[in-house]
Amino acid sequence: MRHFGRPEGLLGALAGRLMAWKNRGRSLSVLTRVDPRPGERILEVGFGPGVDIHRVSRIAAFVAGVDQSGVMVEQARRRNADAIRAGRVELHAGDAGSLAFPDGSFDKAFSINSAQFWPEPLAVTRELYRVLRPGGRLVLAVQPRSSGANARTSRETAVELAALLNASGFQDVTTELRPAGSVPIACAIATK
C-alpha cells in the first residue's frame, strides 16, 4: 500500500501507471458528484498520475492539484502538458495540509482515494475549507482496500469522512456509497 500512498522510485512509477488504468470507473463515478462546470476553478488533492486532472480540465476553466509524490507530479505533468502550457492546469508537489493558494481560490475541491494517507487529516480539511470560496463544494471519496473490507467498512469510512468535514466547519455534510464491486466507494460531500 505504501506505493499507492506516496509512490516513489520505479515501483511508484508502476503504481501510478496501474492507478491510471485501473481506477477509471471509480473516478468517473466520483466525478459525477464533483460535477465540474465551465468557468469553475477546481482543486484536486492527491491527483496521482493526473488522469482526473486531465478529465476535469477539459470542462472547467482552471484545475490545480497537489500531490506529495514527486513521481506522480512528473507523470501528471506529462499527461497534462498541453493544459499546463495553456495555463488551464497547475500542479504542485507538497503537503495538502499547507496549500499554496489564497483564501477562496476554488469553486470546488475533491480527493479520490487520498484521504486515508493524510498524516493530519484535520489540517488538510481545514486547508480545503480555507481555499474554497463561500458556497464551494468539497467531495472526499475513499474506497476501502483493507483486508476484509466490505460495505460496512465503506459506511464507517463515510461516517469518519463526514465527521472530519463537520469538524472543519463545512455545512450540509452528506454521505453516500457509490457502487464499485464488492466494496462501495465512501463519499462525503459538503459545502463551505
Rank of each mutant, 00 (worst) to 15 (best):
N166S: 12
V63Q: 05
E160N: 12
G39A: 00
G46N: 04
S27Y: 02
P7M: 12
T174V: 14
E8K: 13
A100T: 02
R55D: 10
V30M: 02
S154V: 00
T157W: 05
L140K: 11
V66C: 10
R137I: 00
H54M: 03
V34F: 05
F4W: 12
K192A: 11
V71C: 10
A109M: 01
E44C: 11
G97A: 03
L177M: 06
V71L: 09
R78H: 11
R41L: 02
R145L: 10
A81W: 15
A96I: 02
E160F: 09
M72E: 02
E160L: 13
S69A: 07
R145K: 14
E40L: 03
L128N: 12
L164M: 12
V131N: 05
R85H: 12
A20W: 07
D103P: 01
A163F: 01
V73N: 05
M1E: 09
L122G: 12
F110C: 00
R37E: 15
P179D: 15
T157Q: 11
A163E: 14
T153A: 11
A86V: 00
R152S: 05
G12N: 02
A13N: 06
Q116V: 12
G25C: 03
V30W: 00
G181Y: 06
A180F: 13
V173T: 04
A167Q: 15
F47E: 10
G94T: 05
P119L: 07
V139G: 08
A123T: 01
R6Y: 08
A13G: 15
T191N: 13
N166L: 09
N166M: 05
G5E: 03
F4V: 07
S27D: 13
R2K: 11
A162N: 04
P119K: 09
Q143F: 05
V159Q: 11
P144C: 10
S182W: 05
L128P: 11
R55W: 08
V183G: 13
S147D: 11
V159C: 02
K22M: 14
P144F: 06
E156Q: 14
